[in-house]
Design a protein around this nucleic acid. Sequence first.
DNA 1: TGAATATATGAACAAATATTCATAAAAGGT
DNA 2: ACCTTTTATGAATATTTGTTCATATATTCA
Lengths: 99, 99
Amino acid sequence: MEINREFLSKLSEFYKIFGDTTRLRILYCLKDKERCVNEISELLDISQSAISHQLKILRLYNLVRYEKKGQVVVYSITDLHVIGILEYGINHIGELLIK
Amino acid sequence: MEINREFLSKLSEFYKIFGDTTRLRILYCLKDKERCVNEISELLDISQSAISHQLKILRLYNLVRYEKKGQVVVYSITDLHVIGILEYGINHIGELLIK
DNA sequence: TGAATATATGAACAAATATTCATAAAAGGT
DNA sequence: ACCTTTTATGAATATTTGTTCATATATTCA
């Protein structure tokens, strides 16, 4: 009847990740293209540190992939699910918000 | 290129709602059946006040419907989208978490 | 090797959010 | 009219979360 507590907790943590505009913007700007930290930082006009902290969270949940290329670290979306979830939100949530 | 700021903010607020175990549990226990506040409170073993505060948020975002029946207030899920989003999470997020 | 650049990270602080507690409001039963 | 039950709500508090600031680490280049 009730959902298993542990899964529930993971589920809420997961949604929570998408519940922050900084993280959404990061994910969105990585949607079609990998980018390095400074690039993201400049593009979104958010401090390097803040971006780095948020990337850490995204990494922790396997939403982004980390690849070191010389001095630079390049981040990209891990997997199509992430884009799917984003698009699901973009398409379906609008409708709910209107009513 | 970037998502419109206002939509972005609504989107994150929306995901945020699902990013709390209490609210997830409330939504989940209303999945197939309408219930009154005390019923939810007892079922989930969370204080009536906490439930009521959270229901207010769910109501604000039109995720649940409010119906007064005499002394009792009955809540139910507003719309199939909500269940869709929940199920989307339940089905797809598990996979992401594993990797 | 030393300077410059890119990124990560811990601690402090600020802001947002959830819960509790006390109480109010609304309805029903006596 | 009064007591009981159910729900809502404001204020206080506790907790969580995000950002900034200072600094560490790693890599390249001179």
